[in-house]
Simulated scan of single mutants.
Amino acid sequence: MTTIAITGVTGQLGGFVARRISEAGLPARHLARRPERAPKLAGASLFKASYEHSQEAVAALSGVDVLFMVSAREHPERLRQHKEFIAAAREAGVRHIVYTSFYNASPDSTFTLARDHAATEKYIKQQGLTYTFLRDNFYLDFFVDLAKEYGEIKGPAGQGTVSAVLRSDVAEVAAAVLKNPQKWENQILDMTGPEDLSLAAIAQQCSHVLGKQVVYTEETVSDAYASRKAWPAQQWEYDSWVSTYTAIAAGEQSGLSKDIEHVLGRRPTSLKEYLQTLAAENQ
Score class of each variant (00 low, 15 high):
234 Q>N: 04
83 K>I: 11
118 A>T: 15
229 K>S: 07
275 L>A: 03
76 P>S: 00
46 L>M: 08
168 S>P: 03
228 R>H: 13
240 S>D: 14
75 H>C: 00
111 F>I: 09
158 G>Y: 13
141 D>H: 03
30 H>R: 06
3 T>C: 03
130 T>A: 10
61 L>D: 06
22 S>Y: 13
68 F>P: 02
33 R>F: 02
278 L>A: 09
266 R>H: 13
213 Q>H: 02
259 D>Y: 10
3 T>S: 14
34 R>N: 09
206 C>S: 01
139 Y>S: 01
76 P>A: 01
202 I>Y: 00
65 D>N: 12
37 R>T: 00
187 Q>L: 14
32 A>P: 01
278 L>E: 15
231 W>S: 05
243 S>M: 13
223 D>I: 08
238 Y>F: 14
211 G>E: 05
22 S>A: 15
230 A>S: 12
87 A>V: 04
132 T>R: 11
242 V>N: 05
249 A>V: 09
23 E>R: 15
211 G>H: 06
216 Y>T: 01
75 H>P: 00
130 T>W: 08
157 A>K: 01
29 R>H: 11
22 S>D: 13
174 A>D: 12
165 V>L: 04
127 Q>W: 12
63 G>S: 04
96 H>R: 03
41 L>M: 12
93 G>E: 04
276 Q>Y: 05
182 Q>F: 10
139 Y>P: 00
129 L>W: 11
3 T>Q: 11
180 N>P: 08
231 W>Y: 06
165 V>H: 02
157 A>R: 00
134 L>C: 07
31 L>M: 03
176 A>C: 08
134 L>F: 05
84 E>I: 00
80 R>I: 07
84 E>M: 06
111 F>K: 14
163 S>D: 05
270 S>M: 04
162 V>M: 02
113 L>F: 14
264 L>S: 14
246 T>D: 10
141 D>F: 01
120 T>G: 13
231 W>Q: 09
26 L>Q: 15
24 A>W: 12
182 Q>A: 15
192 T>P: 06
257 S>P: 05
208 H>E: 07
99 Y>N: 08
76 P>W: 02
16 F>P: 00
172 E>L: 13
215 V>N: 02
113 L>M: 15
190 D>L: 10
81 Q>P: 02
4 I>V: 14
60 A>Q: 03
125 K>H: 15
4 I>P: 05
223 D>K: 14
17 V>E: 12
169 D>L: 04
68 F>K: 03
140 L>E: 00
63 G>D: 07
195 E>V: 01
257 S>N: 09
53 H>M: 09
192 T>L: 08
105 A>I: 12
118 A>M: 15
35 P>T: 05
69 M>P: 06
276 Q>A: 11
5 A>V: 06
193 G>F: 05
246 T>R: 08
196 D>W: 07
166 L>C: 05
263 V>K: 04
144 V>S: 01
202 I>D: 04
194 P>Y: 06
22 S>P: 08
132 T>L: 10
43 G>C: 12
86 I>Y: 07
110 T>R: 13
280 A>V: 13
206 C>Y: 00
216 Y>A: 03
173 V>R: 13
40 K>L: 07
1 M>S: 15
